[in-house]
Design a protein around this nucleic acid. Structure first.
Lengths: 133, 133
DNA sequence: GAAAAATACTTACCTAGGTAACTATTTGGA
DNA sequence: TCCAAATAGTTACCTAGGTAAGTATTTTTC
């Protein structure tokens, strides 16, 4: 087993998954990364950009950009914190209302993507991925 | 096991790996995707953009762009084919000469990334990833 | 209490993926 | 044979990741 081949395959799969997820999300006017943030905020409540950043292990400018687009499209609002360097990112009422329907679309997509894996295989895959570093 | 969590982890790992690989490749003046193409051409010989595209399951504009950058930096040249719609992508002598050294860097990186996985675990991971679709 | 360091976020610019619409060339069918 | 369809690649524009350098604010340190 060549390391090269393994990583190549992993890359392809991730690209394939995110491409298809984007297609599914198009009907809701959302993209991949925007959905991730929507999901995170819905589950965990209002967060600062720093907290979002840490959760996704992504750099600051990426969050700035994505959140900006989400604001322009009415998904979130940015609220200044007591510490005025911080910006709290809060879901709008509209985002909250649309959430369930979008989650449904995404669940179906994930179900389809992982259809060939048993519950046990998913757990093994999860553990193996955790070992990568 | 939530599908969501599994795909989230997979995304993070791929992002992490490619970020680190880019750092390793910086010393050679190369990026991730450019290295992939260099590798492919070194192993399989001169290919058309179509062939590269099919190999990586990536869209045409992506190859156009990456190959353009590689040409600007002296890694490849583009040669018109008999079918004048086609462009053959050929490694330059310089690219060929530098290849072994870069491969060495990349191998070390991959070794490090996958250090915690046994040979058997790598094979399982490979099989599980193949089942995704 | 003022200056230095740290922190949260932004801006500018890079690579890399995607789609849609275009050009140039080749192929195939009426 | 000639015109329509298919094919290879390009261009323009979108999201999304990265780094480096900048701004504004808070914290720390002397």
């Amino acid at each position: 087993m060549l390391n090269q081949d393994l990583l190549h395959l992993m890359n392809q799969r991730v690209r394939y998954i995110s491409k298809n997820l984007n297609e599914s999300l198009q009907q809701h006017g959302l993209y991949n990364s925007q959905w991730s943030i929507l999901y995170y905020l819905y589950k965990h409540g209002t967060k600062t950009q720093k907290e979002i950043m840490n959760y996704f292990h992504v750099n600051a400018p990426t969050i700035t950009r994505t959140v900006k687009r989400m604001e322009e499209n009415g998904w979130i609002i940015r609220v200044a914190g007591d510490d005025r360097r911080e910006r709290y990112i809060e879901l709008t009422r509209e985002a909250r209302e649309k959430y369930k329907e979008i989650e449904n679309t995404v669940s179906k997509h994930e179900e389809k993507i992982l259809f060939n894996l048993s519950e046990q295989e998913k757990e093994i895959l999860f553990e193996l991925l955790q070992k990568i570093e």
